[in-house]
C-alpha cells in the first residue's frame, strides 16, 4: 500500500511538470490556433539562456551571491523570451494568418529548428547545470500511518508547488485582468474580438511571451533535474499526450491531463513494465491518451466539436 501511494505521488508530481509544458501548448493554441511544436525548443532555449547567464554574470561583474546571479539571469532570460516572442510574431506568424493547421504546424517546426540551432550556437552545446538551490534529499512522511513511511523527493515536491503556483497565477491573469479577458475573447472568436477593437497582433505577442515564461519555468525545473542539454527539447514530445488528453483548448484540461498521464506512466512502468519490457512509458502515455480520445474525440475538457455541412 505504501509503495502504491509512493508511486502515485511520484506520478502526480511528474504529471505536474508535464502540465507545465502542456500549458505552453494550450495557451498558444487557444489564442492563435497554432499548434506550437516549438514549445520544446523554447524550453531548451530558455533553460540554456538561464544556465549560461547564471554562469557568465558572476564572471563578468564579480557577483558573489548565487541567489542574485540567478535572479538577474532569470530577468535577462525573461527579456530574451519577450524579444523572441516579438520576433516570432513579426517575422513568421504575421504572414501565416489563416493558413491551414498543418502549414502552421510546419512553421513552428521551422521555428523549433531555428531556435535549437541558434540557442546552441550562442550558448554552446555542452551539458550545463542550473543550480537554483533546490534541496535534493528525499524525506519520509506519514511514518506513523504506514510501516516504513512514504519516500518523497523534496525537489519534485518543490517543483510541483512552483508549477501549481504558476497555474494559479495564470488562471488569475486570465480571469481577472483586462489583458486576460482580451486573450479569452480572441480565443473564443478571432473576428468578433477584432471587431470590438482587440489588436490581434499584440495579443499574439503576449501569448507567446506568456508561453515563453512558462517555458522558462519548465526549463529551470527540468534543467535542474536532468541538466540542460539538447534532450530537453524532447520534453515537449512527452507533454503532447497530455495536451490531447486534456483538450487542446482547455487550461484545466492541461493540468488534469498532466496528472492522469503522470500517474498512468508511473503505474504502468512499475506494474506493467516488468512483464512486457522496460521503457514503455514513452508510448504508453500516447496509447492512454488515444483510448480516452476514442470516447471523447475533443479531449476531456475540449470544446465540443460540432459538424455542419
Amino acid at each position: 500500500m505504501a509503495f502504491f501511494i509512493e508511486t502515485l505521488i511520484g506520478g502526480l508530481m511528474a504529471g505536474m511538470l508535464y502540465s507545465l509544458v502542456a500549458l505552453g501548448f494550450v495557451l498558444i493554441f487557444k489564442a492563435s490556433g497554432v499548434f506550437n511544436f516549438a514549445q520544446g525548443a523554447l524550453v531548451l532555449f530558455a533553460a540554456l539562456a538561464m544556465a549560461r547567464f547564471a554562469e557568465w554574470l558572476p564572471a563578468w561583474f564579480g557577483i558573489e551571491s548565487l541567489a542574485l546571479a540567478n535572479v538577474l539571469a532569470f530577468l535577462i532570460t525573461i527579456a530574451i523570451m519577450f524579444v523572441a516572442a516579438l520576433l516570432i510574431e513579426r517575422l513568421v506568424l504575421r504572414y501565416l494568418v489563416n493558413q491551414e493547421g498543418a502549414t502552421l504546424l510546419m512553421a513552428t517546426l521551422g521555428i523549433a529548428y531555428f531556435l535549437e540551432g541558434f540557442g546552441q550556437t550562442v550558448f554552446g552545446s555542452d551539458i550545463y547545470k542550473i543550480d537554483v538551490g533546490m534541496p535534493k534529499d528525499p524525506v519520509l512522511i506519514l511514518e506513523n500511518v504506514f510501516e516504513g513511511g512514504i519516500l518523497i523527493n523534496k525537489e519534485d515536491f518543490i517543483a510541483a508547488v512552483i508549477a501549481a503556483t504558476l497555474v494559479t497565477l495564470l488562471t488569475l491573469f486570465f480571469q481577472k485582468t483586462a489583458t486576460g479577458r482580451a486573450l479569452r475573447a480572441v480565443a473564443d472568436d478571432h473576428q468578433a474580438a477584432q471587431s470590438i477593437g482587440i489588436p490581434l497582433n499584440r495579443i499574439w505577442v503576449i501569448v507567446w511571451c506568456v508561453a515563453g515564461v512558462v517555458a522558462l519555468v519548465a526549463g529551470i525545473i527540468w534543467g535542474s533535474k536532468l541538466g540542460v542539454q539538447f534532450s530537453l527539447a524532447t520534453v515537449a514530445l512527452r507533454a503532447l499526450p497530455v495536451v490531447i488528453l486534456g483538450g487542446l483548448t482547455s487550461v484545466p484540461g492541461a493540468i488534469i491531463g498532466g496528472l492522469i498521464i503522470g500517474v498512468g506512466e508511473k503505474l504502468s512502468e512499475v506494474y506493467l513494465g516488468p512483464s512486457i519490457g522496460g521503457g514503455i512509458e514513452i508510448w504508453f502515455a500516447y496509447v492512454l491518451a488515444l483510448v480516452f480520445l476514442l470516447f471523447r474525440p475533443q479531449g476531456l475538457f475540449g470544446e465540443k466539436i460540432i459538424d455542419r455541412v
Binding site: 513568421v92 504572414y95 529548428y113 531555428f114 535549437e116
Partner: peptide, 19 residues
C-alpha cells in the same frame, strides 16, 4: 548548428512565400 538554423529559416521562408 548553422545548418539547423538555415534549414529552419528556409522552411519558414518557403511557407510564407508559397504556402
Amino acid at each position: 548548428h548553422a545548418e539547423f538554423m538555415i534549414f529552419g529559416a528556409l522552411i519558414i521562408f518557403f511557407l510564407i512565400v508559397e504556402p
